[in-house]
Design a protein around this nucleic acid. Structure first.
Length: 177
DNA sequence: TGTACTATAGACC
DNA sequence: GGTCTATAGTACA
């Protein structure tokens, strides 16, 4: 990860999310009320000059649209480009990609996700990777529950997770297998 | 390297 | 139901 960051706020029905874009796309997302890490002089409040010229405004619009749909329990029509390398190990990235394939309203478990990645027994590590997810909601780590029916954890607080799951459970998406 | 964490899961009492 | 215990991956010194 090099260059600069653009921090901007995304107003939603659930409050103002904070988004941080890097030169290749969305890098991090924080829930309303969270205390985002700051990147000092590398960070600006308007799109830095080394960003692709026409993209930042579109990225923001895409992120806002995807977030709005997610908060209504719907899958996003298009995700904004994601800038993966912010701390992601290969295992974490594989977990995050697997999370993107979990349909709304069809939560899975840490163990099932680990097995799907060919690492049965790595459930705990999957939990760790979920916790390291830099883009919650858009990468739906809230759709992973503990095996016994427990909620598991959530980086922004379990109340947010409960809320997201409740909205998705109340929304029917027949195209999901 | 070694070690101490986890958003786990399963076995045992 | 609690309470171990095994386990995989990560972070940090």
């Amino acid at each position: 990860m090099t260059g600069t960051f653009w921090r901007t706020e995304l107003p939603t029905a659930w409050g103002r999310f904070t988004a941080l874009f890097a030169s290749r796309g969305l890098a991090r997302l924080w829930f309303p009320g969270a205390a985002p890490a700051r990147f000092g002089t590398a960070e600006s409040s308007s799109p830095p000059a080394d960003f692709p010229r026409a993209d930042p405004a579109r990225w923001k619009a895409q992120t806002e649209a995807a977030l709005t749909r997610a908060l209504r329990g719907a899958p996003p029509e298009t995700l904004p480009p994601l800038d993966w390398p912010l701390g992601g190990t290969p295992f974490q990235v594989s977990v995050w990609r697997a999370l993107l394939r979990i349909p709304p309203g069809r939560p899975t478990t840490y163990g099932a996700l680990a097995a799907r990645l060919g690492r049965p027994g790595a459930a705990r590590a999957v939990g760790g990777a979920c916790g390291a997810n830099p883009v919650p909601v858009l990468i739906p780590c809230h759709r992973v529950l503990a095996a016994g029916g427990g909620l598991g954890g959530f980086s922004a607080g379990r109340e947010w997770k409960r809320r997201l799951l409740a909205v998705e459970a109340a929304t029917d998406w027949p195209d999901c297998p």
